[in-house]
Amino acid sequence: MNTFFQTLIVGLRLGSIYALVALGYTMVYGIIRLINFAHGDFIMVGGYTMIFVMPLMLRLGLPAWLGVLAAIVVCALVGMGTELIAYRPVRRKGTNMTALITAIAMSLFLENLAQAIPAIGPNPKVSSQIFGNGGFKLGTVTMEYTTVITLVISGIVMLVLYAFTQRTRLGRAMRCVSEDKAAATLMGINVNSTILLTFGIGSGLAAIAALMYMAQYPKVYTTMGALLGLKAFVSAVLGGIGIIPGAMLGGIVIGLVESFTTSYISSSMADTFVFLILIVVLIIKPAGILGKNVGEKV
């Protein structure tokens, strides 16, 4: 029983990191039907930003995790820059396939650029301690502070994001643009700046995910976003890509599958199971768990 709860908590923690990243994939996909392959690399951008900023924070007597604010800003700028410089021109002139290739190129570009920057280079860097060590006992289950903070922050971020899309003027504009760009324009919505905002928010979330990830695995390297990004993408598809609660659910499911496989079967089987689950779910429900193959009336 003890192992079960411990595994559950590890799965939820991992899952909420996947969910934060998956939200970025799903928001961008929802609004421009593009799989932003570079999104995983935004995690890396956030990671390195914190590596450089955290020592400054500590020197100023501030907690290291405040470095995430700088990472959010940098990631949002990189995300918006990617949209402005690469995706928007391609969207205007090319096809969906051109856009997809551009996204893959952007991902490889960021990874290689990072390696070429002398201050970053090919070798991993170790991060400072982010949250306090230790934890507390909940019955017989040990709760690490890192875990609690990860769960709480992710929960809050997701609630705020959901409320933002449902209740605010800009959030509604985002939903309109994702449903129908021409109709959104007729309502007076500036479609391009709404897309830009979506990139900014989605990429900012990647920075928060980077913080949670580093709190657990305090190491940063140029390809750190590759597998993490892929699993988050899988989460988004599993939950129903384009659907915000789907990304949250998908992330949690993938996290749980991974942690339960690791604890009850074998850690080497974890990724195999993650992708197996994806295939099985998509065979049964091609649009993902929360996805609907909507037959919208005309």
Binding site: E179, A183, L186
Partner: peptide
Amino acid sequence: HVFARMTVEENLRMGAYI
């Protein structure tokens, strides 16, 4: 071209977006 995933009233309010 109504916004299919929004309610009737949300659609109307989007009409007044500006």
